[in-house]
Design a protein around this nucleic acid. Structure first.
Length: 296
DNA sequence: AGGGCCCATCGCA
DNA sequence: TGCGATGGGCCCT
């Protein structure tokens, strides 16, 4: 599916191409969404990211599996609204579709919730977390794992964003012991981004409050190519008036991409927010829509 | 224990 | 547009 799984390309070339591709895509998407009214041509967009039209076209075939035209079509408000069709009912699926059957989902700290005051709840005391940065189709990814499985997945915007992203993630579980060991986190990248969309074969550890975990589990039911509203999620977890609280919990999702918080959008179809940048949310939704179309 | 503040919401005028 | 009701989390008494 991705560069990650192409066996013929040498490791180093794959790595740089992946990050390079994402950066170009990101700039193209930001350019287009900033000029909604002018409707820039493909040639103009290619020029903006410093590529010839032919190279621009090849980049998209390689990265998204579809033409740039098709990909950029997936970024309209109209398309986002279409993702919402049947949004309430997708949540009624019997089990999480975001993970493969072999995956295991561990809800840490929930059991303690009743007896622990707020600060202690998130501390992560006694937990050892290994971490590393790896290239991904959506930019540099910070992968965090505890012995039971994948604990954190965050995106950085370039090399000089690393420290900030790491600090932000570590602040979630301040008492955990952190070990920098990219060799041990590398396999998660393949498992998450190399799997058929929405079926990552990884053990997953969700650390959060009871409410947050109910929200995150609900998100795992939203299949690729669908979106739900914050209100849909609120309804589903039995707090119909808590759409706004859901928004807050969605924003604290520690597992970008795996827990598909990018598939939650406003009731109007607008992409209201994304912890790792609205442009990236647009890219993720466009990428999934494009790949779904090309698979048909 | 309780008040105040923040927020990736939502629907109505 | 703009506003008010809204619930959870966190920080401060």
């Amino acid at each position: 599916m991705l560069m990650v799984s192409e066996q013929s390309v040498p490791q180093r070339a794959r790595t740089s191409a992946t990050l390079y591709d994402y950066d170009r895509v990101r700039r193209a998407v930001a350019f287009v969404s900033g000029k909604r009214l002018e409707q820039p041509s493909l040639d103009e967009i290619a020029a903006h990211v410093g590529l010839s039209p032919a190279h621009f076209h090849r980049l998209f075939r390689r990265w998204a599996g579809v033409s740039p035209k098709l990909f950029l079509q997936a970024l309209t408000l109209d398309h986002a609204k279409r993702l919402l069709r049947g949004s309430a009912s997708v949540l009624d699926t019997a089990y999480e579709v975001g993970l493969s059957g072999e995956s295991r989902l561990h809800d840490l700290f929930v059991a303690h919730e009743a007896m622990t005051p707020g600060a202690y709840k998130r501390a992560g005391e006694g937990l050892e977390i290994v971490y590393g940065f790896h290239p991904s189709p959506f930019g540099l990814a910070l992968v965090m794992a505890s012995p039971l499985g994948l604990t954190g997945l965050a995106f950085a915007d370039g090399e000089n964003d690393r420290a900030h992203v790491l600090a932000e993630m570590q602040a979630r579980w301040p008492l955990a012991r952190y070990v920098h060991d990219p060799a041990r986190t590398a396999r998660y990248v393949q498992a998450v981004f190399g799997a058929p969309a929405g079926h990552a074969n990884v053990d997953v550890v969700l650390i959060g409050s009871d409410f947050e975990i109910r929200v995150w589990r609900a998100l795992l039911k939203v299949p690729t190519g669908h979106a739900v509203t914050y209100g849909d999620v609120a309804q589903h977890i039995g707090c119909p008036a808590a759409a706004r609280a859901v928004g807050r919990a969605v924003g604290r999702n520690p597992l970008a991409f795996v827990v598909p918080c990018h598939r939650v959008i406003g009731a109007s179809g607008a992409l209201t927010g994304y912890h790792w940048g609205l442009t990236r949310k647009r890219v993720l939704l466009g990428w999934e829509a494009a790949r779904l179309t090309s698979a048909k």
